[in-house]
Design a protein around this nucleic acid. Structure first.
Lengths: 230, 230
DNA sequence: ATAGTTTGCGTTAATTATACGCAAATGTAG
DNA sequence: CTACATTTGCGTATAATTAACGCAAACTAT
């Protein structure tokens, strides 16, 4: 007769948002026991009849109110047996992107407070969530260079300088503005709209849009999206 | 009062091996119920007090006898609630590499038979293991192009033509022999030994060795290993 | 000896990346 | 109204890398 496992399984999500001054992460404040409060990644236990994916979506909906533009499994954290001091919990971590420019977040009953934190100003988090976040940030950086997910952090229509700044700030690298533009345009996945930015400084700038369909077509044909820097 | 979860957690491992005529995977034959036998990836339930990593190592040791040269977490399969028809089981899949040229495998009590299968001759597997294997193969292909893990499939000392063939067969691409050699050597992570191959056809060939230490040094300095093909 | 095979080193042309130059189109300060 | 600061958008010269191929060296088998 097989002895039943005593391991719990949870999901946690890193929600990334970009604003012009940096990369942000959504954290919630949770109460532990009677007094201790900790900031933590949104997440919770998986239900018996629910897919991992659904579990993440449910937890995010319960605790925040974000409209995801991208989500992907990150890693499963189960090597540290005591990552949760109360029970053995294995966490399947996800990371997601949102357009933070058009976003309201809510604080529901589950989580007392929900707040954006700048990626380089993260407080000590519950469990091993700092570790999860580190891994997530590395993955985001890596992915940004070989898949066009930067657009998922921006509004539908955006300035080239926004895109450029996004790459600069997330990858922490300098970029040559003119070569960057040439490269992105050469892929043929970004098209200009007839709209102009309302910003009133310098030469008026066209707004651009990412053509996801076109990108998928080109992938079929075998193009290789890559943004490298010195 | 919190209701306990009724979800089991397992690990499964894809063990890749390379022989001169192709890429292979290690499968075990398992008995289900009274009559049905299925080939499956080695794996099993995680123990309460055991890390995920240890669980994989233990299962592989119990069921096979392989000496791993590389192992990494692949993906966690938990979206199909009925992937195991008996219970809800979430599987954390790993993939590993071995030098198959110097390898004996055993069949222990757990698994009746253990066998290498060529990657394009895989039978229908238990659970969703065909899906896991597909994802693992894609990951191996991708990783091969941006990290020097091909060496983990070869013996300590190898011929350049072996390395070249490995890349050709796994990535299913043609490569230009002379440019490939130049590229690999230009990274400075492969050094020639004073030994020669015992093969008695054509010009005698030097044996080469991968310098892992040197690779790590160069990574620190920021080199970017990449093998691309048309 | 001669043919067949694989290795090892090289050269050249094509492509891609890098580093800039500079005019256009606005707002703003004087 | 003019000069200036600012940001956009397009271009060009040069360096670096990649792709395509030539060919001799060093062996074995016949």
């Amino acid at each position: 007769m097989e002895k039943l496992q005593n391991i719990r399984i949870a999901v946690d999500a890193i929600v990334f948002g970009y604003k012009s001054n940096g990369l942000y992460v959504l954290l919630i404040e949770q109460q532990f026991g009677s007094s201790e409060k900790y900031w933590a990644l949104p997440g919770g236990l998986v239900k018996d009849d629910e897919s991992l994916n659904d579990a993440v979506i449910r937890e995010l909906h319960e605790e925040t109110n974000v409209q995801l533009t991208f989500m992907e499994q990150l890693y499963t954290f189960g090597d540290d047996i005591h990552r949760d001091s109360r029970n053995r919990v294995i966490s399947v971590a996800y990371y997601a992107l949102v357009d933070a420019s058009s976003l309201e977040i809510k604080a529901s009953t589950d989580a007392e407070r929900v707040q954006w934190f700048k990626i380089d100003e993260i407080p000590p988090l519950a469990f091993d969530h700092n570790l999860i976040l580190k891994k997530g940030t590395e993955r985001l950086k890596a992915k940004l260079t070989y898949e066009p997910i930067g657009f998922d952090l921006l509004p539908e229509e955006f300035l080239f300088s926004d895109l450029e700044n996004l790459y600069c700030t997330i990858l922490e690298k300098e970029i040559e503005r003119r070569n960057f533009r040439k490269k992105i345009l050469s892929f043929g996945i970004v098209e200009e709209t007839e709209n102009y930015s309302p910003i009133k400084t310098g030469r008026p700038a066209k707004l651009f849009r990412f053509n996801k369909l076109k990108y998928k077509e080109l992938i079929e044909e075998g193009i290789h999206f890559e943004i490298k820097f010195a």
